[in-house]
């Protein structure tokens, strides 16, 4: 098992593995996203209270859920990078940050577009919105910190520490609506127990969450590949790759 683990961490091996799996991940993501979005926009009934404005849930909740999962992934990769000094984990860490940051932006922007017609305001400084904004700054901090270093290994290790320290914000975002009172409502599906949403509305939502997660998995794999290529530029396997793939 350990030999497989070590082989997985070898750049050319992981690169080829990702090359084989990424397209399938991308196709599965698009199918699920199409299902979730069309189901949410066309087939789901309007909400009894929010009418059609509730359909923003099909982009807002997946982005928000994924922004938290990706931060957790980033912090775990950071821990592996610090403890085992594993290069692949460093690549996963720096590849996850921009994808996670973009999903956080989506969660914030779609949340504002939902807040204006329903709450009556784009933004309030309640615990949920503020902590999600802090999440964005943590992602941006990791991206900026990595760029500030010339040596990618030293940079990745500094980012790892920031990612690990920031992981404390993940439960704060998630439970902010339970620990404190806020304008934002409680969780609908990302909680224990029965979801507070009718089944025909919930199914496209689950599809959209899964699709967004897989899509981000695809984007992260591609970015990990780039990071590996960049770090290993000039080596034999990268040169072979260039020759073997004309036109790319």
């Amino acid at each position: 098992m350990w030999t497989w683990f070590h082989r997985l961490a070898s750049p050319p091996f992981f690169f080829r593995l990702a090359e084989r799996w990424a397209p399938w991940l991308g196709v599965a993501a698009l199918v699920l996203l199409a299902w979730g979005w069309i189901g949410g926009l066309v087939f789901a009934p309007p909400d009894y209270q929010q009418k059609d404005a509730f359909r923003i849930i099909y982009v807002h909740v997946p982005a928000a859920a994924v922004s938290l999962s990706l931060y957790t992934l980033m912090a775990l990769a950071g821990a592996v990078a610090v403890i085992w000094r594993m290069k692949l984990a460093e690549c996963v860490l720096v590849a996850t940050a921009p994808v996670g940051a973009s999903m956080t932006v989506v969660a914030l922007v779609t949340g504002m577009l939902w807040g204006k017609p329903m709450w009556g305001t784009y933004w309030v400084w309640d615990a949920r919105l503020t902590s999600e904004l802090v999440l964005l700054f943590l992602y941006l901090g990791v991206i900026g910190l990595y760029r500030a270093f010339d040596d990618p290994r030293a940079g990745a290790r500094a980012c790892a520490l920031l990612a690990i320290v920031g992981v404390v914000n993940v439960p704060i975002v998630k439970y902010s609506v339970e620990w404190w009172n806020s304008l934002h409502q409680g969780s609908t599906i990302m909680k224990l127990g029965k979801p507070s949403i009718a089944l025909e509305m919930a199914i496209p939502l689950y599809a959209a969450v899964a699709g967004t997660l897989l899509f981000c998995g695809y984007a992260i794999l591609r970015r990990v590949q780039n990071e590996l290529l960049w770090r290993e530029r000039g080596t034999q396997w990268v040169r072979e790759l260039r020759v073997g793939e004309p036109g790319r």
Binding site: R55, I56, V106, Y218
Partner: peptide, 27 residues
């Protein structure tokens, strides 16, 4: 869209743009 079309389409449009960027940037 019961009067909320700009918000709903705006949200989906913005999300689609960000997803497209995530596909295009690494490529």
């Amino acid at each position: 869209m019961s009067g909320y079309a700009p918000y709903v389409w705006g949200s989906f449009g913005f999300t689609a743009m960000v997803l497209a960027w995530n596909w295009w940037a690494p490529r």
